[in-house]
Design a binder for these strands. Structure first.
Lengths: 115, 115
DNA sequence: CGGAATCCCGTGTGATACTG
DNA sequence: CAGTATCACACGGGATTCCG
């Protein structure tokens, strides 16, 4: 149970911003400031932290261009890109079933309040 | 961005125990105490909470048998079962790439400590 | 057996300010 | 521009105890 790769992976995906960053990088290389604009409500700190974590596990590659002003590019690694198909499976499911889940939740809460 | 069904779904899947419970229920209906044995290191409180959350959003159905001793069965709803294929896609990916992620992380940490 | 209620702590996350 | 540093806090989650 401990060190289970499934659980480790899911903890990464569950860290609130990881998937959004991966999706933002799925189409093309992006700079730090571009990612901030892609994901408006992420804080600077969380974007940095999320990118470091993804880089650390080998899903994202970071390229520093020594220039003035400094420029840093982020892109998905091959392994990061291999994550896209299964991830899109989940996203498709969420898109199709999100409404049903929302409705079920409202009915459940309404019934709980009435009871 | 707010109320995005993808983010809501991922927050459920990211809540540490949700996926394990879904997997435990993927084969057959299970009782509360059976689930505790299936997932040894889950606390009673977290199992209850996870099941309530899954029931609330319509992924799990709960059936109470009024008897002595009481008996409660949990099973995946049709919507819950429809989640299995995309979920297995992620799990397969994690199984295949977990080792690579682990290695990348160790190399990253070693390089960080050396630098 | 299948919970609910309570207490408590670690840490994930946000806001803000500062730096190369 | 692309971060780092620090503080502050809510919240997830574990341990324990009690209930129908």
């Amino acid at each position: 149970m401990r060190g289970c790769p499934i659980r480790e992976t899911l903890e990464h995906l569950g860290s609130k911003w990881t998937v959004l960053v991966v999706i933002a990088l799925s189409r093309q290389t992006r700079r730090f400031s571009e990612l901030r604009r892609d994901i408006p409500d992420i804080s600077q700190r969380m974007l940095t932290q999320t990118l470091r974590d993804l880089e650390r596990v080998g899903l994202v590659e970071r390229e520093l261009h020594a220039a003035v002003p400094p420029r840093v590019d982020y892109r998905l690694s091959p392994m990061g890109m291999s994550l896209l198909p299964p991830l899109l499976g989940i996203i498709d499911w969420a898109t199709q079933n999100g409404g049903a889940m929302h409705g079920a939740r409202q009915r459940y809460d309404a019934a709980a309040e009435a009871g």
